[in-house]
Write a protein that binds this DNA or RNA. Structure first.
Lengths: 246, 246
DNA sequence: TGGCAGAGATAACATAGGTTGTGTTATTAC
DNA sequence: GTAATAACACAACCTATGTTATCTCTGCCA
């Protein structure tokens, strides 16, 4: 496939004009491979570029003084990484790869140029940023007001649903390259307790632990456990289109 | 003062051209008064407008099935409310006023028009959205990885620092119109435990409970308790200006 | 003038989740 | 093939925080 990963990402969002495609293509010099566990940047590093994920998984996090770590969000193919730092000189959070990945980088000033050249892309980027916020909000609710059982189930279902959107297919059976430690750090729990909870879900045939990663066996079941309401993942693409490209 | 509250807000961010001022002025028909506890919208309501806060305090929240509530963010004068919902048809969270307030509304489609007409304002709005995200991130860390004592202290210091920015003056002594119930809902704690924690901080002369609201007596002291790092509130206005209006 | 609602304070008791520690595998590195 | 490491499992015990239940105080408004 000749088209860049950013173009691919946005095709999914909207029909792009030739000019807009070229604009997006120009954003990336070339996709680059990175291996598992490489840390793209740390909190406090200067913020110079954004990335789009062509292949692989990543996560953003914050390290605490006492060595604890809070995972903020997990990124899957099609996501854009680093937008959070747009308004800052320094990165607000660190970023690491969960698997071997292919990413496309584009420098920060380019984004402003894109805003200047295409109102549609500008609005789409704003929409993505607002979706990122909605995901953070949901994570906040998860941390503040749910039990460990619900937290774990909710997080897993969110990942499943987000993958469905970018893969464009639904399955009730799904493998995620996550560790229990990552879950713990994302959900504000201890690994031990995540493990306890996981055993519970395992006995109920909702999940499974293959040699590596986590296997979801019954996403609808998990959804029930979590009282999962997917509306926070439903962007209003049509509305944005109507306003930006009438 | 003749100038609209949005203009006032952005003056603080950047020197605006006459055209840009007029553009912002056009965003609002007129400031409007609302009384304490009115609920501007609920989660799921159609998202039609954004607001800027001219006077008073507000907060956004999510209600849970079981009656619990998670407060997501608190807004003070100068803040813009609702940007979070830009990419959605329905509101992601509810909004209520904490005090009698004066707000300025502007309809959603107008924002896209502003993007089209001023690259600088577009970038500033993007910066605000990214700052909102940074605040959510910090709240996430707070919920996931801090003790009740740290949570309360951190939240209070954040409010103090944010007020300083919009008030343009520093004090080591500050009154906030917050209730302990609101703190509890914002921090994922029970009111009882917030109260316990509050007593502790009171004995250490860090805070005080006047007839209504909360009085901060020693912000620096609280800052130490919370290991508060204010960098997540330092937007890079200069960078944005350089990129958007060179 | 009373009484009701919201906010705060406090006590007694209950529990979800944390901590520490010890094994077991599976994977990678030499 | 063995050492080292990372992930997972599970047991025993501990504690921060939740729950329930009073009591007070203030403000409000009928």
């Amino acid at each position: 496939m000749g088209s860049s990963c950013i173009v691919k990402h946005f095709q999914h969002y909207a029909p792009l004009s030739v000019a807009e495609r070229e604009l997006l293509d120009s954003l990336e010099k070339s996709p680059k491979e990175y291996s598992k566990n490489t840390q793209l940047w740390s909190q406090g590093d200067p913020c110079e570029a954004f990335y789009s994920v062509k292949k692989g998984w990543a996560y953003s996090f914050r390290d605490m003084e006492d060595g604890a770590r809070q995972v903020l969000d997990v990124y899957v193919p099609g996501d854009i990484i680093g937008l959070r730092d747009f308004g800052f000189q320094k990165r607000v959070s660190g970023l690491r790869l969960l698997t071997n990945s292919v990413l496309c980088a584009f420098p920060k000033p380019r984004l402003t140029e894109v805003f200047a050249e295409s109102l549609l892309l500008c609005n789409i980027f704003f929409m993505i940023s607002s979706r990122d916020q909605a995901i953070l909000v949901e994570r906040l609710v998860n941390l503040g007001r749910r039990t460990a059982r619900e937290k774990v189930a909710h997080f897993l279902v969110e990942m499943a649903r987000r993958l469905e959107k970018t893969n464009n297919r639904v399955a009730n059976h799904l493998h995620l390259p996550l560790t229990q430690t990552l879950l713990a750090d994302a959900l504000g729990l201890s690994v031990v307790h995540v493990n306890r909870t996981f055993q519970e879900l395992k006995e109920e045939k909702l999940v499974e632990a293959p040699n590596s990663g986590i296997m979801l066996l019954d996403i609808e079941g998990l959804q029930k456990v979590a009282c999962f309401d997917p509306s926070y993942l439903d962007e209003d693409l049509d509305g944005v289109l109507k306003r930006a490209a009438p």
